[in-house]
Design a protein around this nucleic acid. Structure first.
Lengths: 220, 220
DNA sequence: CCGTTAATGTACGGACTGGTTAGTTAGTCA
DNA sequence: TGACTAACTAACCAGTCCGTACATTAACGG
């Protein structure tokens, strides 16, 4: 609630388009993630900002476009993280495990992102479809996975009949479910999938599952 | 829009509490699943019913309780389906695969249920927590899984260190993700996880993954 | 130091929304 | 058959919500 950035104007407002825009985006991300698209209130987003509702319409045009901008930023962040992937020096088994673990960690570290994705799916991805930026680019992780799979298959280690996209779905489902559905799962089965003490258990479980699948003896 | 049930009053309304209640519940399920809790409109639900908004408040008390009732019915249905599980005569491997496939089929057949669960998770399962009916009972599938796992482990077939709840999470994640996230996944990776032609591919993939995990050679 | 414009704030409109009030009608049972 | 109650309807209300018209001010180039 107190001023948190550098030069700290006493109470006066500096004009800083970039900062205002960024602050709106940050607050909107929290609110949309917390309450869903329809549940989030433009007035409330504005109130939690150091600026006014007028600025939301000035910079973004409307609620819908604001939500799209929130999605764009959220996805661009995960893409940035994926670009830092550096696993191709590992052997295929270790590389896949490492990649799965990074996905696991990223999902755990960004629950708001998970919620936004859930929400966007309720809306049948209409905002993604309408966004040139989002519908264009794909995930760097897919390319990395493709190369690892090729190497693994060449060496005869991997026997499974999957491509990178399917494998990515497989890895993501577990990571996503664990975060997205923790509440209903916890309420119904009395088990907290995100309990700190269980973290390593589930992280290992994910890796074991993926590796077991990829390397299973299909003759059986 | 025309009368769909038996005796078909010309235009006059019969008094039938059970039918009215059931119709409200059915319409509400569709609307909540389609638009989310906040996005659904009580007026709209009423309009799609042969009765009025007042009846929603008469029978359910309010929007919140109506949503809870919708969840209760949705969950009771899946429990009913699970009670029909009859896989314990199979050997453990076949039994687990069959169970996974039934989960797969059920998720695919009830996308509205998946959406409701997603929505309830956005609300951090507050309605489930508030519902005595829902927070009490657990899934029959867990008991079945427990017995299969025991048998499989006794015979030395299963080597994995999981209990029924974790395995259930593992199976559900894939089934759930495939339906719940098909829109964003399709938009971003250009692959329709629910395409009819891919159904067998993913169904097999799920079974292979679960069996590979359970039976993997842990020495490796 | 003044004109211009990007950036910001205020106040409000108009449609909508969940919930309610007041009243009506169909069925039932004494 | 007439009192009684459950089932039902229409109209409305108070508050909310997205969006905008209009006024204002900081910053910057000349």
């Amino acid at each position: 609630m107190t001023s948190t950035e550098g030069p700290a104007q006493p109470a006066g407002r500096t004009r800083d388009a970039a900062r205002t825009r960024a602050e709106i985006l940050a607050v909107a991300t929290r609110e949309f993630a917390r309450l869903g698209y329809a549940g989030a209130r433009v007035d409330e987003i504005a109130a939690r900002t150091r600026t006014t509702k007028r600025m939301i319409y000035y910079y973004f045009g409307g609620k819908e476009q604001l939500f799209t901008a929130v999605l764009e930023r959220a996805y661009s962040r995960i893409r940035e993280a994926e670009q830092l992937l550096d696993v191709e020096h590992l052997d295929p088994v270790a590389a896949v495990r490492r990649l799965a673990e990074l996905t696991f960690d990223h999902h755990e570290a960004h629950p708001d992102f998970i919620r936004l994705v859930s929400i966007e799916n309720i809306h049948e991805a209409e905002h993604i479809a309408a966004s040139a930026e989002l519908s264009r680019i794909s995930s760097p992780a897919i390319n990395v996975l493709t190369r690892i799979l090729d190497t693994g298959r060449e060496s005869g280690l991997f026997t499974a009949d999957v491509d990178a996209v399917d494998l990515h779905a497989m890895i993501s489902s577990f990571c996503f479910f664990r975060i997205a559905n923790r509440h209903t799962f916890g309420a119904l089965f009395g088990r907290d999938l995100v309990a700190a003490g269980q973290r390593e258990h589930y992280r290992t479980m994910l890796g074991d599952m993926i590796i077991a699948y990829l390397t299973a003896d299909r003759a059986a």
